[in-house]
Amino acid sequence: MTTSTALVTFTGVQKTYDGRILVVRDLNLEIQKGEFLSLLGPSGSGKTTTLMMLAGFESPTAGEISLDGVPITRTPPHKRNFGMVFQNYALFPHMTVADNIGYPLTVRKLGKSEREDKVKRALDMVQMGHMGDRYPGQLSGGQQQRVALARALVFDPQLVLMDEPLGALDKQLREHMQLELKALHRRLGVTFVYVTHDQSEALTMSDRVAVFSEGVIQQIDPVDRLYETPVNRFVASFVGDNSVLDGKVTQASGDQCEVTLTDGTRLTGINVNKANTGDSVQCSVRPERIGLAASGGATNHLSAKVTDVIYFGDHLRLRCQTSDQPELSVKLPLQYAGQLREGATVNLHVPTEHLRIYR
Results as ranks from 00 to 15, higher is better:
residue 15 K to L: 04
residue 8 V to S: 05
residue 77 P to I: 01
residue 198 D to V: 03
residue 233 R to Y: 05
residue 227 Y to M: 01
residue 117 D to T: 12
residue 17 Y to R: 08
residue 342 E to D: 12
residue 290 I to F: 10
residue 223 V to G: 14
residue 3 T to W: 10
residue 346 V to H: 11
residue 259 V to G: 07
residue 303 S to N: 11
residue 13 V to S: 11
residue 67 L to K: 03
residue 195 V to H: 11
residue 17 Y to M: 03
residue 203 L to G: 07
residue 318 L to E: 02
residue 236 A to L: 00
residue 78 H to F: 08
residue 280 S to F: 07
residue 84 M to L: 14
residue 334 L to Q: 14
residue 294 A to T: 09
residue 356 R to K: 14
residue 101 I to A: 06
residue 100 N to I: 06
residue 201 E to P: 11
residue 11 T to R: 15
residue 297 G to Y: 02
residue 177 M to F: 07
residue 148 A to S: 14
residue 88 N to F: 08
residue 229 T to G: 11
residue 289 R to V: 00
residue 6 A to K: 09
residue 249 V to Q: 10
residue 238 F to P: 14
residue 109 K to S: 09
residue 37 L to G: 14
residue 311 Y to T: 02
residue 232 N to Q: 09
residue 97 V to E: 08
residue 354 H to T: 13
residue 130 H to Q: 13
residue 315 H to S: 15
residue 259 V to P: 10
residue 205 M to C: 09
residue 102 G to I: 01
residue 300 N to S: 05
residue 93 P to M: 02
residue 88 N to H: 14
residue 221 D to P: 02
residue 324 D to C: 01
residue 297 G to Q: 13
residue 94 H to E: 09
residue 1 M to G: 14
residue 195 V to Q: 10
residue 214 E to I: 00
residue 249 V to N: 12
residue 107 V to G: 05
residue 231 V to L: 12
residue 327 E to I: 02
residue 330 V to A: 05
residue 132 G to I: 06
residue 145 Q to H: 11
residue 9 T to Y: 06
residue 109 K to A: 09
residue 351 P to C: 01
residue 317 R to E: 15
residue 333 P to Y: 00
residue 337 A to Q: 14
residue 326 P to D: 00
residue 106 T to W: 12
residue 72 I to W: 10
residue 335 Q to Y: 04
residue 135 Y to R: 11
residue 331 K to Y: 00
residue 247 G to L: 03
residue 188 L to G: 06
residue 356 R to H: 15
residue 339 Q to G: 05
residue 288 E to T: 01
residue 149 L to H: 12
residue 309 V to Q: 13
residue 37 L to I: 14
residue 50 T to S: 15
residue 7 L to I: 10
residue 301 H to T: 12
residue 318 L to G: 02
residue 201 E to M: 01
residue 201 E to K: 03
residue 65 I to R: 08
residue 170 D to T: 02
residue 210 A to F: 06
residue 216 V to N: 13
residue 18 D to Y: 10
residue 25 R to G: 06
residue 294 A to H: 11
residue 315 H to V: 00
residue 240 G to M: 07
residue 115 R to S: 11
residue 12 G to M: 01
residue 99 D to H: 11
residue 138 Q to T: 04
residue 202 A to H: 13
residue 226 L to M: 09
residue 34 G to S: 06
residue 79 K to T: 03
residue 322 T to Q: 11
residue 271 N to K: 08
residue 232 N to A: 03
residue 216 V to A: 09
residue 68 D to H: 05
residue 359 R to V: 01
residue 91 L to W: 06
